[in-house]
Each structure stands twice: as structure tokens, then as C-alpha cells.
Design a protein around this nucleic acid. Structure first.
Lengths: 193, 193
DNA sequence: CTTGACAAACTAACGGCGTTAGCATACAAT
DNA sequence: ATTGTATGCTAACGCCGTTAGTTTGTCAAG
């Protein structure tokens, strides 16, 4: 009724706040509507569907992650760049776990505008590896390996899968990053041969 | 009405079939009930809740994965054991993606009987690494690194995150495994020093 | 063979979800 | 002042998991 100036941006902004504070799995359109002092059906004047809203939040998350990563690697090279990149990734997953989960739930099947989002994810990694003497093909593979390590580590720690042993999780993380750097150096040698 | 001899095992068996063929996200108690020629409410004579059913299916999935892994590493050592272990893991995730997802959705928070499930996941990895001369602490870390790589790779490939470049995903996978083996060898050297 | 108990099915309902259709109203442009 | 559109509303549909209360089939004890 009261006709507030509800922007599309307001809505996804509020949704992001709610997901970050209350958790992704407890988020619903009805609660979002309530927070905006609106009925759920009225949301459909601003969004097309729940899926589309999720996708948009996913894009936001990816751009945030990319921003943090690019800032982290600025002016750095080789192992220092990789370590900073990994740290930024790790920190993002740890500090904003619910938003990070939204990225994962993005249905990559829809090849619409998601190609550019894919590029956003890849770009900082490629930049960080630029200091190594690698072939283009090696970089394409190594980029996947890096993402596997990072995503695997973050999501398993978040899920509580790393509680089995009394050893520091951060130490494990550093070992994982060291492993990737070893692989980088090894690949470099192969490229030169 | 017709009073069939519905076992608890029948029910989770049917649920597993449905999840494997129709997908995890489209699975519902009502559909499961329909497949069993039962009303949804009647399911509660056999299960306590949807969550409990999911958890049980998760246990099944973990035991299946463990079985495949132990068979894969039998009689093998060092890098050969690691490669076979990884292959078994990779194959499982690729051939039974929906069941694999159930493992991920297991709420590890509940420290009930899930500790033993955690052990089931870790055991084959520890066995496969036994041929390397590592300290117990190193193995605890390296086990996490291995799981990160494998899980990260499988879940991202499944999600369609690896379509960006025209390079073979299997080649990327092999590079990831090679990276882990490099880390193993490197850790071994450090342990001896 | 009857009876009684228990397991396993049923119906009905609740509150939640996303979503659609149709209606009312406030605001902006003519 | 009138009109059109954007944005709100209510009501409803069909899903979902879940609970309460009821009927009924089966099987063992009397």
C-alpha cells in the first residue's frame, strides 16, 4: 500500500543481508517480503522467480570474490601472488560462508550470461600465474586444479569434515597451497624441457 | 491397506534408486511414498524424518565409496596406490553423482554416529599413504589435502564449472593427482630431514 | 478357533513454500 | 483533471514435511 521506492537493488541487497545473517537454507521469498514490509506475491513485481534472484546474488558474490582476489594479488608475483590469491579465496569462504554457498548453487548449465561470470572466476587465477613460465594449455589445467583445491578445502571445512584430527586446519590449508606451488614449479620445468 | 512386507531396508533402497535416477533435488517423501504404493504419512511408520532418511542414505553412500576405494588400493603401494585411490574416488563421483551429493549434504555437525562415518572416509586414504615415510601428523594434514583436491574437482566438474576452456578435463584431473603425489614426495623428504 | 494386541496402513489437517491471477490504488505524465 | 502504469493487495493452487487420530490387517496367545 504505502508505496515505498523499492529498487531492484534494494531487494537483492536485503536478500544478501538476510542470507549472510540467517543462512542460505533458511532464506525464503516470504521472509524476504516480510522484511521489506510487502506480501510475497508483490515481490514478483521486481523479480521473475526465486531462481533468478539466486542467480543474481550469485553474480554479486562472484564479483565480490573477484574484487578481493584482484586486490590481493596486485603488485605480486609468482609464489607470493599465488599465496595471496589463495588467502583471499580462503578468507572469503570463511568470512562469508553463506554467500560463498550461493556461488556453488549457481546452475552453470544455463550458458546465458554465466560465461562472463566464469571468466570473472578464472581471471584472477590466470593473472596470478602469469609470472610462471607456462604454456597457455598448462594454465588452463592448473587453473582448474587451483579451484579444486580451494573449493574443496573451503567447502569441507565449512561442512565440518575436518574435525577428525587434532591438527590445525590452517596448517593443512598451507600445505595444500604449498602443494599447488610445487605443481606450478614442476609444470614450469616441464614447459622448459 | 494391502499390507506388504515393507522393510526399512526396502525404503532406503527405493529412495536410493529414485535419487540415482531422478536426481536428489527432485526427491520427495511424497514421491517415495507413491513409488511404494503408500501415502506419505504412512512413511512415518518406518522413518523418523526426512533428515534421518537423508542421513542414512549418506551412510550408505560413504560405505559404498569406501568399499570401492579399498578394492582399488588393494595390493598397491605409493604412487600407484594413490592414483588408484583417486581414480576410484573420481569414478564414484562421476558415475553416481546424485548419491555423491548426498554425502556432501550430510550435516557433519551432529557428532552422533557420524564420527565413524568420518573414519570410513579417512581410512582408505591413510592406508594408501602408508607406503610413504610420513609422520602421523603429516598424514593427518595430507589426508585433508587429498580430500580437498578430489572433492573440489568432482563437485566443480559436476556443477559444470570446467567448461570454460577447450582442454580435456581428464588431463586436468591427472595433473591434480600428480600435484598431490609431488606434495607427498616433498613431505617425505621433509620428514627425513 | 477365537480373541486381543500391535504394526502398518489410512484420512484429515497444519503451516510452510513458490507462484499465478485478478483486483485496487498511488503516482506521474498528459 | 484524466489516464496509464507501476506497485501494492487478496485469494488461491499445488507442492512440501509433518502430526494426530483412526481403521485394519496379521499373528500369537489363550
Amino acid at each position: 500500500m504505502a508505496r515505498q521506492g523499492l529498487t531492484h537493488a534494494d531487494i537483492i541487497g536485503t536478500a544478501i543481508e538476510m542470507i549472510e545473517s540467517e543462512g542460505l537454507h533458511s532464506f525464503s521469498l516470504r521472509e524476504l517480503a516480510g522484511r521489506l514490509h510487502i506480501k510475497a506475491a508483490s515481490l514478483y513485481n521486481h523479480i521473475r522467480s526465486s531462481d533468478e534472484l539466486h542467480t543474481e546474488i550469485g553474480y554479486y558474490a562472484i564479483s565480490e570474490l573477484k574484487k578481493a582476489q584482484l586486490a590481493a594479488i596486485a603488485g605480486k608475483e609468482r609464489s607470493e601472488a599465488i599465496e595471496s590469491l589463495a588467502d583471499a579465496y580462503y578468507l572469503f569462504g570463511k568470512e562469508r560462508p553463506e554467500i560463498y554457498k550461493v556461488i556453488l548453487s549457481l546452475p552453470m548449465v544455463k550458458n546465458d550470461a554465466i560465461h562472463s561470470a566464469g571468466f570473472d572466476i578464472v581471471e584472477p587465477i590466470m593473472t596470478a600465474m602469469a609470472g610462471y613460465h607456462l604454456t597457455r594449455e598448462q594454465m588452463m589445467h592448473l587453473q582448474r586444479v587451483f579451484r579444486s583445491i580451494m573449493h574443496g578445502f573451503i567447502s569441507q571445512e565449512e561442512a565440518g569434515c575436518f574435525r577428525q584430527f587434532p591438527v590445525d586446519v590452517v596448517d593443512s590449508y598451507q600445505m595444500a597451497v604449498r602443494g599447488f606451488i610445487l605443481l606450478l614449479e614442476n609444470s614450469e620445468k616441464e614447459a622448459q624441457a
